[in-house]
């Protein structure tokens, strides 16, 4: 269960505090619920994901994670360019306390990412598609109660996307998912509930369709 209570967030800019991105966002996500985040560009979707993932902290309010939450997947960070894919994977495994079964995790990551020999090459030589495949495989290699995905399903070529979608579907039974996507079909496919972010506030919908409808009406108006 994830509890978000009265969260306010703004970023520090070169010229002092910026404008509020989130202003009093509150909601509770029950276990094993898949939620899609919708809203226009700059509405604070990625910011909210980063806050839930614990990568950033809110200026006001609090976020409680009473379960294992993944890091925000597919946001480009978390890989060191000078190290190989395997070394990066080892690091992530160790940070998440999988020292004892590190071998199994590595086999899984290598298998899923399908990088072949590139797995032992420095990450900075990877194409962006290869990078996101590695990141995606990494996040699936560990058991979380909630997975956070920022447009991750749009990564890679067609065959990898299909594989990623199948893997996400598999998760649905045992874990929750919080995702941002601009693709309506993706949201329909994976999410049951929806959150619409508008003017720094969050509106919860039990049905993702209602969230999308509210979002579209706000654009049309």
């Amino acid at each position: 269960m994830i509890v978000v209570e009265d969260v306010h967030k703004r970023y520090q800019t070169e010229h002092g505090a910026g404008k509020w991105v989130l202003q009093g966002v509150s909601f509770t996500i029950q276990p094993r619920v898949s939620v899609g985040l919708v809203g226009r560009n700059g509405a604070g979707k990625s910011t909210l994901l980063r806050l839930i993932g614990g990568v950033d902290v809110p200026n006001r309010g609090r976020i409680e994670r009473r379960c294992r939450v993944s890091w925000p997947m597919g946001f480009g960070g978390g890989l060191q360019g000078s190290l190989s894919g395997r070394q990066n994977a080892k690091f992530v495994a160790r940070v998440h306390g999988h020292e004892s079964d590190i071998g199994d995790r590595l086999v899984y990551v290598a298998d899923f990412a399908e990088l072949g020999e590139a797995f032992d090459e420095p990450v900075k030589t990877y194409s962006s598609g290869m990078k996101s495949r590695l990141q995606f495989a990494l996040s699936l290699a560990f058991d979380f109660d909630v997975y956070i995905s920022d447009e991750v399903t749009s990564a890679g070529d067609a065959s990898f996307r299909a594989k990623a979608a199948a893997a996400f579907k598999n998760l649905a039974g045992r874990a929750g998912l919080i995702m941002v996507s601009h693709d309506e079909n993706t949201l329909h496919q994976f999410c049951s509930a929806g959150i619409w972010l508008n003017d720094g506030r969050a509106h919860w919908f039990d049905d993702i369709d209602d969230a999308l409808k509210a979002y579209k009406e706000s654009i049309a108006a």
């Binding site: 990568v55 890091w71 946001f75 960070g77 978390g78 890989l79 940070v95 998440h96």
Partner: peptide, 10 residues
């Protein structure tokens, strides 16, 4: 190491 703060454990 800024990239590593993507993992909140760090």
């Amino acid at each position: 190491n800024r990239a590593l703060f993507a993992y909140r454990q760090v």
